[in-house]
C-alpha cells in the first residue's frame, strides 16, 4: 500500500540555511534517494544532491539520514520510523555547497600526498606473482568506494576539526592497502606518523561502523599501521639505533 511520508531536507548553502518539508508517496522498496528524486521531478527540481550509480557502488549520495551518516541509495524508507519526518542533512564534516552537496575536495588534496605502489623491479613488464591469501587483506581495503562517510564520522575531523593533523580513516585505508601490498617496497612509516597523523586516531571505531563496504577500518587497517609506527619509533632498541645513526 502506498503511504505518504514526510522528508525534512536541509536547504541552504555556505551562508547557512533551513529545512524544508516535502510530502512523498512511497512505493515498495523505496530508498531515501528515490524519495529525493521524486521531489526533484515533481516538486522542486532545484533541490541539490549527488548521485551516480544508485547501486551502492560509487559512493556519491552520502548524507546524514536521521542523524546517521548513510548512503541514500542504500537506506530503505521502510526501515526508518515514519511517525516523524525523515531528516536528510548534508555531511557535517565538510562545507556545504548547496542543500545536500558538500565540498569534499580536501579528501582529494590529501590523497595526492600519498606515495603510490612502489615495486622493486620498477620498469619491468613481467607479470606480478602474488598468492590470493597474501592479497586478501589488501583487497578488503580496496573495496573502498570513497563515500567519505568514515571521514565524516571521525571525531578528529568532525568534532575537533583537525584536518590539519589527520588524513582520516579513508586515507589510512589507502595507506594500509599500499603498506600491506605483498610487493610494495616503499616505507611510509615516517609519513604515517608525521604527515598523515595516524597517531591522532583514538580507536573509537566509529568509522568502521558507518562503512557501507563493511571494511574493518580500525582493526585491520589503522591498528596495524599504528603498530608499524610504534615498532619503528618507540621500540627501545630501534630508538637507540636511530640515535647512534644520528637520525632524529
Amino acid at each position: 500500500m502506498a503511504k505518504t511520508i514526510t522528508l525534512r531536507v536541509f536547504r541552504g548553502d555556505a551562508n547557512g540555511g533551513t529545512t524544508q518539508d516535502f510530502r512523498v508517496e512511497t512505493f515498495p522498496g523505496m530508498v531515501v534517494l528515490d524519495a529525493i528524486h521524486v521531489i526533484q521531478k515533481e516538486q522542486d527540481p532545484s533541490l541539490a544532491c549527488r548521485w551516480n550509480c544508485k547501486a551502492a557502488k560509487c559512493g556519491s549520495c552520502s548524507a546524514e539520514v536521521n542523524g546517521m551518516p548513510r548512503l541514500m541509495c542504500k537506506t530503505r524508507v521502510d526501515a526508518l520510523p515514519t511517525d516523524k519526518p525523515i531528516e536528510v542533512f548534508p555531511l557535517k564534516t565538510f562545507p556545504v555547497i548547496k542543500d545536500l552537496v558538500t565540498d569534499v575536495s580536501w579528501n582529494y588534496e590529501v590523497a595526492k600526498k600519498i606515495q603510490g605502489l612502489t615495486l622493486a623491479d620498477e620498469g619491468s613488464k613481467e607479470p606480478l606473482r602474488m598468492q590470493q591469501i597474501d592479497v586478501d587483506r589488501v583487497q578488503e581495503f580496496r573495496k573502498c568506494i570513497e563515500c567519505f562517510l568514515c571521514q565524516n564520522t571521525c571525531h578528529i575531523l568532525r568534532d575537533n576539526e583537525r584536518k590539519d593533523v589527520f588524513f582520516g580513516p579513508r586515507q589510512m585505508i589507502r595507506l594500509a592497502s599500499l603498506e600491506m601490498h605483498p610487493l610494495d617496497v616503499a616505507d611510509r612509516t615516517q609519513f604515517l606518523k608525521e604527515v598523515a597523523g595516524v597517531g591522532a586516531c583514538n580507536i573509537t571505531k566509529c568509522c568502521t561502523e558507518v562503512c557501507p563496504e563493511h571494511i574493518q577500518i580500525t582493526d585491520n587497517g589503522i591498528i596495524p599501521l599504528k603498530e608499524r609506527v610504534a615498532d619503528t619509533y618507540f621500540d627501545p632498541v630501534r630508538k637507540l639505533l636511530r640515535w647512534v645513526g644520528g637520525r632524529k
Binding site: G116, K125, P127, L128, R129, M130, Q131, H181
Partner: peptide, 21 residues
C-alpha cells in the same frame, strides 16, 4: 599488456593458484 601494466600501477586482481591474475 594493458592489464599487466595496470597491475603495476597498483590494481590487485584475484589470483590463480600459481599467483597470476
Amino acid at each position: 599488456d594493458r592489464i599487466l601494466e595496470l597491475e603495476r600501477y597498483g590494481a590487485v586482481f584475484d589470483r590463480t593458484p600459481e599467483g597470476l591474475i
